[in-house]
């Protein structure tokens, strides 16, 4: 998903440090925020944890929104005919790496769920799995953001210089 603005049709140019910071913030804050909200459901100090968790999730969505309008996301999502050969070469490499990582995450998740099923008889070793609508909502949006931003994340970590901002 690339959000194109009239002011910056080629997306906002980010420095390598900013781009990497946004990616790390997105991938770290979202799961931490979700886990805090999950813990909040089971503790007495639930409200404080819930607010902290929600704040982290909102911060992650802000990072996602900035990335969605960036030149990295444009490079990752733009149709091939609108990219030049260097952008395409970089995008193809990043897409391959993103595919590998995403497939790995899916495979590990399935192994986890299988393991949970196998251990379901053991009362002393119970593994968590999404059960409620809120849980599945959190998993869905996490997976969706991961799928939408992974290629841009690899581009961010490959980037060595701040690009010229072409929108101004």
């Amino acid at each position: 998903m690339f959000v194109r603005s009239a002011k910056r049709p080629f997306g906002r140019s980010l420095s390598p440090a900013t781009a990497r910071g946004l990616v790390i913030a997105l991938y770290a804050l979202y799961p931490i925020g979700c886990v805090l909200q999950l813990i909040a459901d089971e503790t007495a100090t639930g409200d404080a944890l819930r607010i902290a968790g929600l704040s982290l999730v909102v911060a992650a969505f802000v990072a996602f929104a900035v990335l969605a309008g960036s030149s990295l996301q444009r490079q990752a999502q733009e149709p091939e005919t609108l990219l030049d050969e260097r952008e395409l070469a970089d995008r193809n490499r990043a897409a391959y790496q993103a595919h590998s990582v995403f497939a790995g995450v899916v495979l590990l998740s399935l192994i986890y769920l299988m393991l949970r099923q196998d251990l379901s008889d053991n009362r002393n070793f119970e593994l968590w799995a999404p059960a409620t609508g809120d849980h599945w909502n959190a998993v869905f949006w996490g997976a969706a953001m991961l799928a939408m931003t992974l290629p841009a994340a690899f581009l961010a970590f490959r980037k060595s210089h701040a690009d010229e901002d072409m929108g101004e």
Binding site: F10, S71, L83, D84, E85, R86, E87, S160, H161, D163, E164, M166
Partner: peptide, 13 residues
Amino acid sequence: VNPQTIGYLERGD
């Protein structure tokens, strides 16, 4: 090409 690509060429990237 994209002007950024000219920068990549200049730097040898």
